[in-house]
Structures are given as C-alpha cells and as structure tokens.
Amino acid sequence: MIYRILVVEDDPTIQRELVTLLQGDGYQAEAVTDFSAVVSTVRDRQPHLILLDIQLPGQSGFSLCSQIRAFSNVPILFVTSSSSDMDELSSLLLGGDGFVTKPYHTAILLARIAALLKRAYPHQPDPVLTWRGATLHLDRSQLTYQEATADLTRNELKILAYLFRHAGTICARGDLVSYLWDNQVYVDDNALSVNIGRIREKLAGIGLTGFIQTKHRQGYLI
C-alpha cells in the first residue's frame, strides 16, 4: 500500500523539498496550491496523513486543523517555524498528532511520519522492499535472496529499510544514527558500525557479500 500525504505549506522551497523527500521515501505526496480550498482538498483527496504549517495565507493551520477534525481523523503533523510551547500545546489541543519545528532533520521527520501512519493504520500490511535481487520483508523482519533467508533484529531491520528506501544514494552516518535512535546524544557512534557489521555477516551467509558499501567519511550505500 502506498500512503497519500498532503503537504499544506506556502513556502515554495520548503514545499518542493517536502514533496521530493516524501516521494523519495515511497509515499504519494501532493502539495496544496489553493490555500482557500484546503478543507475541500482534504475531502476530495482523502489523504492518509497531512503535513500542516501554522502560518498560512488566509487562515491559520490551527483553524484548518479544527475544520478538518469536524469530519476526519486523518493524522495531522504540524511542521512549522514556530517553536513556542503555546503553539505546540494549541496544536495538540485542536486535534493535531505531532509537532515538528523547522529546520527539521529529514530522518527524524520521516520517522515521525512512519510512526503516525503505523499507529493510525495498524492493520495495513507492511510493504516489501526490493533491490538488486534482495527482498526485505518488513512484516517478518527478514531479508531473502535466491531462496535463502536471514532473520533480522529490530535495529538491523530499520537500518536495511532506510538503506533500501534510499537505494543508489549515499546515506550519511549521522542521518542513520538520528533515524535509529532519535538523535539521542548518549548513543555511541560505534553502535552503528557494530550493527552494520552484524548485518554484513548475515547477508554474506545468504550469498550477499558486498551488498552494503562503505563510502569513506560519507556513509553507506547499497
């Protein structure tokens, strides 16, 4: 299943950035262009999740959130330059499901989106990701290759899912650490290296030697 995400953001640069980011992560993303018709667009498009700014032309994101909540329980994640506690509290009291402050870290934003979708649609089957003959089964926490199977731990699955969703591009170590551990400062960077090493051993065991490449001082690539 491909989730539909509606981006309600009036800054053209950020709007394009969000749509590109979401599409690159496997979502069907669409940006609102007529801010006088946001509510009707939500009714027509029936998105699975909405990214909503607070400061918008015509009316605020708070007002739009209240109107949407009158007919829909779609997850609403506020993505805004406002960092005040009152704005965050207001977003939650009006029915918002989360609050992310700009400038946002892309890996953390994607993790928040994935968590909201999983919570809102718990019975939807997880997708299967494929790359160069390997298949990652997110629902079974397994990777298969030529009829051989490797069982994965939770962190190993998350690392591979991130790499699969960014296949063909270098994934920075910092982005992976933030995605895995929500940027917790006490996490030793070596923990990522240990997990990557264990994944490589499991992949080699099913014939996938060299599947994950290390790019010196840059990150990892599949």
Rank of each mutant, 00 (worst) to 15 (best):
M1T: 06
Y3M: 07
R4W: 00
R4K: 15
L6R: 00
L6V: 00
E9I: 08
E9S: 12
D11Y: 04
P12F: 10
I14T: 14
Q15F: 04
Q15C: 12
L18H: 10
T20E: 15
T20Y: 07
L21S: 07
S36C: 11
S36K: 12
T41C: 14
T41V: 08
V42L: 01
R43S: 08
R45V: 13
R45Q: 14
L49T: 00
L52V: 13
I54E: 02
I54K: 02
L56E: 02
G58L: 13
Q59P: 01
S66A: 15
S66C: 10
I68V: 15
R69W: 08
N73W: 00
N73Q: 13
V74P: 08
P75T: 02
L77G: 11
S81M: 11
S83M: 12
D87F: 00
E88Y: 01
L89W: 09
L89G: 04
S91F: 11
L92T: 06
L93G: 00
L94E: 11
L94T: 14
G95T: 08
D97Y: 06
P103D: 06
Y104F: 15
T106R: 09
L110T: 04
A111C: 08
L116K: 12
K118T: 09
R119I: 05
V128S: 04
T130V: 08
W131L: 09
W131G: 00
R132D: 14
A134I: 05
L136Q: 03
S141L: 10
Q142L: 14
Y145G: 03
Q146R: 14
T149C: 14
D151V: 07
D151Y: 10
T153H: 02
R154G: 04
N155I: 07
E156P: 08
L157F: 02
L157I: 05
K158A: 12
L160Y: 02
A161W: 01
L163N: 04
R165P: 01
H166Q: 13
A167R: 13
T169L: 09
I170L: 09
I170G: 03
R173I: 09
V177K: 08
S178G: 05
S178Q: 14
Y179T: 00
Y179P: 01
Y179I: 03
W181V: 04
V185T: 03
V185K: 05
V185F: 10
Y186F: 06
D188T: 03
G197A: 15
G197P: 08
R198S: 11
I199W: 00
R200A: 06
R200E: 10
K202D: 02
L203R: 08
L203I: 07
L203V: 12
L203G: 10
L208P: 03
F211G: 06
I212E: 10
Q213N: 04
T214G: 06
T214M: 00
T214Q: 02
K215N: 05
R217S: 11
Q218M: 11
